[in-house]
Computed example of a mutant assay.
Amino acid sequence: MSITKKTSLFAMLIMMMIVVAACGDKADNNAKSNDPAATKTTTGADAGTAKTDDTDKSGASSEDNKESDNSSKVELGTTQKGSYTNDYFGVSLKFPEAWEYQDAEGMNQLTSASSEAIAGDDEKKKKQMELSQTKTLNLLMASQYPLDGGQIGPSAMAIAEKVSLLQGIRTGEDYLKATKKFMEDSNFPYEYKDFTKETIGGKEMDLMQITTDAGDGSKITQEYYSTIIEGYAFNFIFTYLDADSKAEIDNIKKSVQFK
């Protein structure tokens, strides 16, 4: 499907910041007196580890300390032609070998670009997005077409964000509700279906499905899956446009395996 380059980039990149910005907004509202944990991702490689500098200035519980220790071992995972694996989150999947994919550095650059596009001149949004980026692991971005090619097709993403009880995020549904609120407050032109649950690769995940106009009268469907793993909201974001691209996504979902 050929649509304008601007529309294509917006539709593909906006997902990268909507999810993480939502939780940043939750943290800003619920934990203003605390310095949130910062997650630093490695860049320049599609396999590596990410270390966190978790410091709770008001005192951390033993459970929080355990999460901090675990976070020091977080892996960004390995993306290769047609596959992604991550031992820390215990997940693997396959995607078509002909698809484009981004390494961690490429995803970080795209995240920064989409952040600027979404925030515009809104300083509050800029701050919450900057906060969220420090806690976010960009794990996988695979798509049928290059992001700058003026075409939009099916895509698969994996993103994880460090969360805490202070943010009120205890389940994948909590995370998705914060995401939806951010979308609605930002007046994005989305239609929402009810939250549901679905088992993928043996793990039950919460699901939010949305649709939006592709720019030529057809619809883009995005499926947001979320669950909590080792103190992180682990998210899949799948995008498709029609029956053929949905079939591609269904095959990817069938390939997902959680240990």
Rank of each mutant, 00 (worst) to 15 (best):
T212Y: 08
A45C: 10
S164H: 10
G168Q: 02
T239N: 05
K81D: 09
D54W: 08
D250S: 06
T55S: 13
A119M: 15
L13Q: 02
L9C: 10
I228F: 14
G48T: 04
K254D: 15
L137H: 06
S58E: 15
F236I: 12
P96E: 05
S83V: 06
S164E: 09
L147G: 02
G82R: 10
S132W: 01
T42L: 11
A21H: 02
Q151I: 00
I228K: 04
N70P: 07
D103N: 15
M12G: 07
S33N: 11
L207E: 01
A247F: 01
C23A: 14
K193T: 11
I159P: 05
G201L: 09
T179P: 02
K197F: 07
E161K: 04
N251H: 12
G77W: 14
S71Q: 12
A38R: 05
I14D: 00
E204A: 10
A50N: 09
Q209W: 00
Y88A: 01
T39K: 07
G201V: 13
A104C: 05
S33E: 15
M157H: 10
K197L: 11
K135L: 04
T52I: 08
D56V: 04
A142C: 01
E204L: 09
E97K: 15
D242K: 14
Q80C: 04
F258Y: 10
E248Y: 01
S72R: 15
G77V: 10
I249G: 06
A31Q: 05
D69P: 01
I237D: 05
Y240G: 04
E130H: 10
S68Q: 08
G48H: 02
N29H: 12
Y88N: 05
A233G: 12
D250A: 12
F188Q: 03
K180D: 02
